[in-house]
Design a protein around this nucleic acid. Sequence first.
DNA 1: AAATCGGGGGC
DNA 2: GCCCCAGATTT
Length: 397
Amino acid sequence: MNETSMTTAKVINGIQIWPQEKIERFRTTLLSWYDIEKRDLPWRKNNDPYRIWVSEIMLQQTRVDTVIPYYLNFMRTFPSIEALSQAEEDTLLKTWEGLGYYSRVRNLQKAAIQIMEEYNGEMPRDPKEIIKLKGIGPYTTGAIASMAFGLPEPAVDGNIMRILSRLFEIDADIAVPANRKLFEEILREIIDPYRPGDFNQALMDLGATICTPKNYHPEKSPVKEFNQSYLNGTWEKYPVKSKKKKAKPVYYAGVVISNQKGELLLEKRPSNGLLASMWTFPLLEESQISQFFAKGKFLSPKEGTSDYSVNELNDQLDLFYGIKPVLIKEPIAGDTHIFSHLKWHMAIYYGELPKNDLIDSIPEHCAWVKPEDFDQYTFPGPQMKMWAAYKNKFLEK
DNA sequence: AAATCGGGGGC
DNA sequence: GCCCCAGATTT
């Protein structure tokens, strides 16, 4: 390679970056497209760092259409960083109900408290400070720095890795976290220093609407003349992305228990781990009630279960919840729920406490709750499914 | 480097 | 079923 040739266009990890003139043409082309086609989104009304921050956290691994109603409600409930810093945990969790990745909202509040205590109530401008805030990683740092403060920082998300991979025919696996740095380096070279926030958002809009993972038609792209994989006819190869592992199956019996007053037993999950601090009907794992499942196989209501299984379930309910309900022998329903790394198989049972039973011996983390008060509790997806199964069986006939 | 952490939409 | 989504944190 001749280092004195041309205007010394850069090479990053074997990737040939464009000459300056071409970079500038790309910026103009992309931003001209963005100025006409950009999506009208609620967090784009102004450059308030708080608004941008909240939207970026919600948008992590979550689609725009899903986020919009949550975002509007969240900003009504917590209009300022100070309001967020003072929120009750249950109120906070309720605003995220159904959105998933619930540690996001817990970290959001922790960061709000950090900002109140360490940054005088204002989002810091320095990326080195922004990234110290809880729940804010390299992507969100770049997004806030560029969109709120106009700094030329890369914000590399899935969209941008896919786009750059196709533009430059990059063979690095975008599923490997360590490869993100390569895309950041490239983006630093081509980002528009005058409109960095718009540049990052333009790429995201392009990735969401045209440079999509599937049904991709490179000839429709406003920047097709810059797209090396399109020009070379190799675009179907990019991006290179390795597959992730399948969700591991886990088996549960979910149990709906009613007391004499028509209240149902709920339990609050531990404050750490999956679905932390959220409420569900009692769930008993396969390891505790292995008799419910034959050799790891889920026994659906159709397939039936044995009396012995129900007796075993009664023992477990007595042991873990201090209750002795009378159970219906067959499950009232069966359902599954898929997480990123787990697949829950739930057999849903129903039982009632006998008239003469004591109901005041349940554990600290449990509660008897009237169904009309369920809206005061935060329910995750699997609980919604169990509750729907119960209603379908007993309430809506 | 790999696992954990949710849920929904598209095909 | 599989893949993906404006990823971050923990192990």
